[in-house]
């Protein structure tokens, strides 16, 4: 691993050491579990966003997709609003809805040739609309014990959510490293025109990547719903942006083809540790978003610095 690739990992280590020195509460085992629990949803969402970024595209749809999936799952498992009790099937439907919305972004991108930041912004609005329709003024509380157990149950000291996130990262890594979909996503971000010269049709792979990202957002929404105990329109409010921030900070560049799931996960941990540590040392949680905003700008600028030249066009 080169110095550049190790940067985020070193930053993570430094942040951990600094907070551990500043605050004794930070270095308890319980807090480590807390951090990993807090990082779980973002890690899953970031898995999805990472693949889109590898293409060189961008995905702003997590907020809307997660809203729709959150309401969907809350209304399909045993809940306070209706008689539905589909259990795991309901969770599956919510994930599939996420995948469908993701696929829609991808289809609009390849068919209408509309840039991804616009299609995903549009799809996000559609997802929020679906969520608002499903919400219909009354918040559906989750009764289903299985789903509630995702957030509350523990295995080896860590919440089930943490384990689910770990599994997602593992799956994401395998897809990225060992499947044609993952390798082609890398290649599309690296040199899309070369794939065309080699006779590869890239459109289906792009759609597939967006679909997979949507599925990750769907699962993330289910996890949030379990945490909150009810279906919420705001379930994914800040995740689009946090996921991009985490991925970029971890070394998954916006230009595409660089970084990957493991890089992004380091970014997720870095952001979460930062959030956790800042709260522990007494910084207002409202500042967090702003800190993230600055971090992403600095990270993108730093990544772009070596590639800069004078007559470059940046949109």
């Amino acid at each position: 691993m080169s110095i550049g690739a190790a940067g985020p990992l070193i930053a993570l280590a430094v942040v951990v050491v600094v907070f551990a020195a500043l605050n004794p509460q930070f270095r308890t085992l319980g807090n480590v579990a807390n951090i990993l629990d807090a990082a779980a949803v973002l890690a899953v969402v970031t898995c999805g966003t990472t693949f889109v970024l590898l293409l060189g595209s961008i995905d702003l749809s997590a907020a809307g997709v997660m809203a729709a999936s959150s309401l969907t799952v809350a209304l399909l498992v045993e809940n306070t609003r209706n008689d539905a009790d589909y259990g795991v099937l309901g969770i599956l439907v919510a994930v599939l809805l996420g995948a469908a919305l993701g696929g829609l972004s991808g289809l609009l991108l390849v068919l209408l040739k509309v840039p991804s930041f616009m299609t995903t912004l549009g799809v996000s609005a559609v997802g929020l609309g679906i969520a608002t329709l499903l919400f219909a003024g009354v918040q559906p509380g989750v009764v289903d014990a299985g789903l509630r157990g995702w957030a509350t149950g523990r295995f080896l000291g860590f919440t089930h959510l943490t384990w689910i996130a770990a599994a997602c990262v593992l799956v994401g890594w395998v897809v990225q490293r060992h499947t044609r979909l993952g390798r082609y996503a890398m290649a599309i971000g690296g040199a899309e025109e070369v794939l065309a010269l080699s006779g590869v049709r890239v459109a289906p792979y792009k759609v597939a990547v967006f679909t997979m990202a949507g599925a990750f957002y769907g699962l993330g929404a289910v996890m949030v719903t379990s945490q909150l105990g009810s279906g919420v329109v705001q379930a994914g409010a800040d995740y689009s942006f946090s996921a991009i921030t985490a991925a970029v900070v971890g070394g998954t560049l916006l230009v595409g083809g660089r970084g990957g799931v493991l890089h992004s996960t380091v970014g997720v941990l870095l952001l979460t540790v930062l959030a956790n540590g800042l709260v522990l040392v007494g910084v207002s949680p409202y500042v967090q978003g702003g800190v993230q905003g600055l971090i992403v700008v600095v990270a993108v600028a730093a990544a772009a610095a070596p590639l800069r030249h004078r007559n470059q066009v940046v949109k």
């Binding site: 916006l254 702003g290 905003g293 992403v296 700008v297 993108v300 600028a301 772009a304 470059q312 949109k315």
Partner: peptide, 15 residues
């Protein structure tokens, strides 16, 4: 800094 405008303003949004 040669950062795409949607990223700068996305960052600006959260700041």
């Amino acid at each position: 800094l040669r950062i795409p405008s949607f990223i700068v303003t996305l960052g600006g949004m959260s700041v």
